[in-house]
Simulated assay, not measured.
Amino acid sequence: MRIPWQKSDSEGGSTAIELPKEPAGPKGSAKKNAGASRESAGPRAQGDAPLPKGYTPPKGRPTPKRHEQEIKRGVVRDPNALTPAQQAQRNKELKKSMSPQEWKDYKKRQREQRREATREAQARMDAGDERYMLDRDKGEVRAFVRDWVDSRRFINNWVMPAALVILVLTFAVSYATPQVANAISLISLAFMITIIAEALIIGRGANRAVTQKFPGSGETGFALGMYAFSRATQPRRWRTPKPRVAAGKKVN
Score class of each variant (00 low, 15 high):
residue 2 R to F: 10
residue 5 W to I: 13
residue 7 K to A: 08
residue 9 D to R: 13
residue 14 S to D: 03
residue 22 E to G: 04
residue 32 K to Y: 09
residue 36 A to Y: 03
residue 37 S to R: 12
residue 43 P to A: 14
residue 43 P to M: 09
residue 46 Q to V: 06
residue 46 Q to S: 05
residue 47 G to E: 02
residue 49 A to T: 09
residue 51 L to C: 04
residue 56 T to R: 15
residue 58 P to Q: 00
residue 60 G to M: 09
residue 67 H to K: 06
residue 69 Q to S: 14
residue 74 G to K: 03
residue 74 G to V: 09
residue 74 G to C: 04
residue 75 V to I: 10
residue 76 V to G: 14
residue 78 D to P: 02
residue 81 A to V: 15
residue 82 L to I: 03
residue 87 Q to T: 15
residue 89 Q to Y: 12
residue 90 R to M: 12
residue 92 K to S: 12
residue 98 M to R: 15
residue 99 S to H: 11
residue 100 P to V: 05
residue 102 E to H: 04
residue 102 E to F: 05
residue 103 W to S: 14
residue 106 Y to R: 09
residue 107 K to T: 01
residue 108 K to T: 11
residue 120 E to V: 02
residue 121 A to P: 03
residue 124 R to P: 01
residue 126 D to C: 06
residue 132 Y to L: 07
residue 133 M to F: 05
residue 138 K to C: 05
residue 141 V to E: 02
residue 149 V to R: 00
residue 151 S to P: 01
residue 153 R to S: 03
residue 158 W to C: 09
residue 165 V to G: 13
residue 166 I to D: 13
residue 166 I to M: 13
residue 166 I to S: 12
residue 173 V to E: 09
residue 177 T to I: 05
residue 178 P to I: 08
residue 181 A to D: 03
residue 181 A to C: 02
residue 182 N to D: 14
residue 184 I to K: 12
residue 184 I to R: 09
residue 187 I to F: 14
residue 193 I to V: 13
residue 198 E to W: 00
residue 202 I to M: 04
residue 202 I to Q: 02
residue 203 G to K: 03
residue 203 G to N: 05
residue 206 A to N: 02
residue 207 N to Q: 01
residue 210 V to F: 00
residue 215 P to F: 06
residue 218 G to Q: 03
residue 219 E to M: 10
residue 219 E to K: 13
residue 220 T to L: 11
residue 229 F to D: 02
residue 230 S to T: 08
residue 231 R to C: 10
residue 232 A to V: 09
residue 233 T to P: 07
residue 234 Q to A: 08
residue 239 R to S: 07
residue 239 R to V: 05
residue 239 R to D: 04
residue 243 P to E: 05
residue 244 R to T: 04
residue 244 R to N: 07
